[in-house]
Design a protein around this nucleic acid. Structure first.
Lengths: 110, 110
DNA sequence: CCGTATCCTTAAGGATACTG
DNA sequence: CAGTATCCTTAAGGATACGG
């Protein structure tokens, strides 16, 4: 039994999965690997997930140290999200998962 | 936009994550990589998750073709779960995730 | 030992409206 | 454009009891 942030985990993979849990976190991380993205770009990538949900996920990822954001003091506001070094280290695993999926699920487009 | 089993996914990583979503699936898959396990062994590994939940997850993994089970006609019954080839192919990604977690979260034991 | 059924609680996700 | 607030629906997980 292991502990992190007052939560209990039965093993390391359990904790690792916790950090990318939810419908959108892995998707966000994968796309941020290509470079910084603005809020609206991420919303487009996620096919229009609501602002509330997208913000929730971005905040959680930031709190877990996987991404950080830069706010430019302009009008209208501009904010960019990008991976931290910790977040970049997670990419190889996500990349392998994606490759496995592409290989085994050549599924219908549209 | 991609489709699989009547569900929609925004990209491949989205589908890949869907298959290992939930509190226990990745944990089960990782431990099955060491070899076949019985129901009670898996329950012990998951620190006593309820039978209902464990069965749900095992059934979902089986339906997705990641594991299969062998039922031995004995009394008391004996059932063994193990990875399919498809499931084995997923292990490298999970293994990388675990390594990343071990490296970055050397957290408190117990 | 393994699996099912029932009931319950909480967490996740979405719709919408509003603000600087 | 980015973020917050409110409300709502559904999905996930757990407790318990029972049956082959």
């Amino acid at each position: 039994m292991l502990k992190y942030k007052n939560k209990k985990f039965v093993c390391h993979i359990d904790l690792g999965m916790e950090l990318i849990r939810g419908k959108w976190k892995a998707v966000i991380l994968c796309h941020l690997n290509d470079g910084p993205k603005r809020f609206l770009e991420l919303q487009r990538i996620t096919c229009g997930v609501s602002q509330k949900v997208l913000n929730e996920k971005l905040t959680e990822l930031e709190n877990d140290g996987l991404i950080f954001k830069t706010t430019y003091p302009e009008v209208p506001p501009r904010v960019e999200y990008e991976l931290t070094d910790l977040g970049k280290g997670l990419f190889p695993a996500l990349d392998l998962l994606e490759q496995w999926t592409v290989k085994n699920y050549p599924f219908d487009k549209k």
